[in-house]
Design a protein around this nucleic acid. Structure first.
Lengths: 216, 216
DNA sequence: CGAACGAGTCAACAGGGTGTCGAGTTACGG
DNA sequence: CCGTAACTCGACACCCTGTTGACTCGTTCG
């Protein structure tokens, strides 16, 4: 889903097995985008900025990418792949001590996004204006929700966690919290939790939500 | 903060006590914005759309509002006032039964935004592109966080809730969850909790996070 | 009454962004 | 050395925002 449809121009290139000097340009554009995102939001970066940054003209930019958003999407694909790999590794090591397992998952999640601060913030921004970005987000979110819901159900099945709301709903609520808290903590505007406290606080909420029974 | 600075044009008008036929136009613009937001996102609505909808030309629009975003801000001020009033009422009735108190607060929160679906979705959208909208959000968010943090501390002080993370951090995390879950539930794209299940699920997480101790 | 003033109105302009088209220029494989 | 595909960009068509300056019209006051 990430190449053919998203980068029609790239499909035309590269037929010839010989070296295509265009690959360098493509990388340059991506690098420029990542660099500029460190200093200003996506909305304040024009196609012209990206083109100039890569040493080409604006029309030439369109030879490589169909739009500014496509560049972001390409960048995001990388982060998503990285995040999925990390999360997969964490979840595969079967959860023996629950606290340990959830803690590692949260820390991995946080670490991945903290390592791509600018991109994460741009992601949140573009999600509200671009349907493809929104779709990518929904896809990733859904994957995490399913993983979490499965884990919650497993804990309930083995009697470690009490019954409660539908595991999927609980997973959605908690994952939403993660996303928003981490995103706010990285973006820096508005009230947010200090970076070092993010994981402990989230962990606390997760553990109580999954394992503890509310008083009544 | 909501009139003079945000609507400089309005400051000039209305000095004369006589009838200003411009007030009708202003209302018409606001009504048009609210109507159009029901059918498409703010980004897909141009100043021209608003002007035509109100039966005036584009330059005339600028006589009433300095920008498209200013219209949204005016609309949001209303919702914020309404939400604050509702929340104030809920919190004022002193919390006797904790479960009841939190439940009513959550339900009020949810109800307010559900009653302004289009506006709430537009708010989330504009927050990522407009600094003033972001500031308004931060202000409202901060107010709720403080209220919640105070309530949590009160519960801890009277021994009803166990110690845990800083009350403020807990309040930020839980309020973030509310916001994101409700917003996703209203916007309709991506995985979300069904409208009727939103309050019960959120309530469950709040209660466990505030009152229960995690296992260890 | 009629000048003066301020509210209200808009055609026309300036400026900046996006995306496309067609006419190039290069560089390799035959 | 020629064809072909990769690559490049000037110029264009559009859309959107925000501003300017002139114009209408009702009200007020001398």
């Amino acid at each position: 889903m990430s190449d053919g449809a998203r980068l029609p121009a790239a499909a035309g290139r590269g037929r010839r097995p010989a070296r295509a000097r265009g690959d360098d340009r493509e990388m340059l554009i991506l690098a420029t985008a990542e660099r500029l995102l460190e200093e200003r939001p996506l909305g304040a970066i024009s196609v012209d900025d990206l083109a100039r940054g890569a040493g080409i003209s604006r029309p030439t930019f369109y030879f490589y990418f169909p739009s500014k958003d496509a560049v972001l999407l390409t960048l995001l694909d990388r982060v998503v792949a990285e995040a999925d790999a990390t999360m997969g590794a964490v979840f595969d090591g079967s959860v023996k001590a629950p606290r340990e397992g959830w803690q590692r998952a949260l820390a991995a999640y946080h670490e991945t996004f903290r390592g791509h601060r600018a991109l994460t913030v741009a992601w949140a921004e573009a999600r509200s204006t671009n349907a493809e970005v929104r779709a990518l987000w929904a896809e990733v979110f859904e994957r995490w929700v399913q993983r979490c819901a499965t884990a919650i159900e497993a804990e309930r099945a083995r009697g470690a966690a009490p019954p409660g709301p539908a595991a999927r709903d609980l997973a959605i609520a908690l994952t939403s919290m993660n996303e928003r808290v981490i995103s706010a903590s990285l973006s820096g505007d508005g009230p947010a939790i200090a970076a070092d406290d993010v994981v402990p606080v989230l962990l606390r909420v997760w553990l109580t939500a999954v394992y503890a029974t509310p008083p009544d």
